[in-house]
Design a protein around this nucleic acid. Sequence first.
DNA 1: CTGTTAGCGCGTTCAC
DNA 2: GTGAACGCGCTAACAG
Lengths: 350, 350
Amino acid sequence: MTRTRSTPLPSSVRPGRKRQAVTLSEVARAAGVAVMTVSRALNTPEAVSPELRARIHEAVAQLGYIPDRLAGSLARGSGGVIPVLIPTLHHSVHVPTLDALHDTLAAAGYHTMLGTTEYDVAREEELVRALLGWRPDGIILSGIDHSEATVRMVQSAGVPVMELLDLSPRPLDLNVGFDHAAVGRAVARELIGRGRRQVAYAGSMTDSDPRSVRRMTAFQATLAGAGLRADLVAHRETPSSITVGGELLSELLLRHPEIDAVFMVNDDLAAGALFEAQRRGIRVPQDLAICGFNDQDIAANLNPPISTVRTPRAEMGRVAAEMLLSSLRGAAVAEKSVDLGFEIIHRQTT
Amino acid sequence: MTRTRSTPLPSSVRPGRKRQAVTLSEVARAAGVAVMTVSRALNTPEAVSPELRARIHEAVAQLGYIPDRLAGSLARGSGGVIPVLIPTLHHSVHVPTLDALHDTLAAAGYHTMLGTTEYDVAREEELVRALLGWRPDGIILSGIDHSEATVRMVQSAGVPVMELLDLSPRPLDLNVGFDHAAVGRAVARELIGRGRRQVAYAGSMTDSDPRSVRRMTAFQATLAGAGLRADLVAHRETPSSITVGGELLSELLLRHPEIDAVFMVNDDLAAGALFEAQRRGIRVPQDLAICGFNDQDIAANLNPPISTVRTPRAEMGRVAAEMLLSSLRGAAVAEKSVDLGFEIIHRQTT
DNA sequence: CTGTTAGCGCGTTCAC
DNA sequence: GTGAACGCGCTAACAG
């Protein structure tokens, strides 16, 4: 019994599968060469004689052949996809990171598969399970808080794993981010240092986002350590926005009219708080200091410009992608974990 | 000659391919059933007896088996990926659209492959060629301006094609967007109707973004049609931002101090222009009317709130994904092309 | 440099 | 309800 049919069915008549694309063997037939030669002409052109190469490329163009990456990846054992799991797209904070990630990976020929966890470890686990099915060359996770199953899966996937946005004391593999607790401490100290005594905290996703929790906890601990109240807090579980910022300040003012400073943990919240203060005739920073977070475009441009914390949002993406790529190239990555830091930008609202 | 080896090599010793993941047959062996039974237990559980199903699921959990989607897709003939090509991620205007798209597709079990064209049709063509290699179930393009090769490729891919963000007189297949020329006309008429006579236009990516070109051209034509100057224009080929908005207004004021209105084609530009006007003591809207575009968070919240154009950014993503999905389910889509419209939001800057 | 052989891991088909 | 064979489209390994 032979495996080659003397008269292969034309693809249009082939039963079952709904595939119709031009295949390698059709190109081979058109060019009058073996399948393998076409494969080589496409993947390692220098290994094929110029004449054949020309004939083959002509046939490829003629037929509009597009290599099947499913088949290629299956045969090769891996195929150039890298899942990127970011927290959310309902808000644009993570866009610069995603952008840098995608840019850098795409430039190296990798395809990005997008997933959003919405700050839910169960959802992350489900996504990881599904995406690992594509036999990715690497995987990029957000944060350092994962379910046990997630950890097990990515560890046994046998590919580089990047944990992004946060710093882990014990990374699964690669890790790029900055220290969110340190942000909380630094901002608290900054506000205290400038003479504030009734210091409030306002944020969104403070329950579900572990990084947010770490910032807040450290912030409160620092206040308490300085003998100040640490319970002046308002928060929402909705994405942040200018509008929400105004509402959070109103809420704070209603419950604690005595506050003289507030850490609004995102610049859009800070902007909203600033506008609300201006509507109420509260002088900023004289009556109330406002500090934002992330150093987004809006912070520097309002009047007065808002003090904030510069975070390495794009850098994290770029550096993470580069580390993953060099790990993929087999280079031993010197630093498995890198802290990209942050910086308090003092402007006119504190 | 037989195709089955009596003693198959353990995967760890298998030469060449660097695959290590647990396979169906390993699960089958562990559960003491045939490969096909495991496949069934996973894909059509009702076709397998409860006892076997239980044994199989146990083995799956035990071994940490994750189905290989490359192999599955290859065998099945298609595999649940949908490429989404958006213009750019260097700016967050397109994020709500991408978010809605991804959300809706993910909920239906499809995986999103991300591509950014950066307003370059050659780059779009390259991306389409590469992404079509994954034998996607559908494809989502931005805009209606493509290279001939792109058109040829997507048309012969035999899958639904969505053109998003703009309206085409002759869609390749599915189409969701709104009329950008109509926006230009409407804003020009609005400004003229409010008594403005020296009406300027300022935008970014005005050369490379065809939708931007259509807005500007129609805007200018409407001014000219009303007997007004249509050459009061400033633009940049960089992404828009608050800072750039201020710079564009400065440029306009330098060259044409007589302007009494300006259409800043993005809300961040409009915000920057407003701030710049405030710094210069120019009264808005008395001395200068400012109209933005996109109705982003910032527009409604500044003081004064900025008049703008509400565009259906998230709706486009949702509707497009839903249309694609119903097309995928074989439902004949009633309307191949849908205009989601726009709305001028009059606030206090015009 | 070119062709041949033997799978990659899974689903379809058709027997039992 | 279960199993065996066969092929999806492509590439690694080995001949020639």
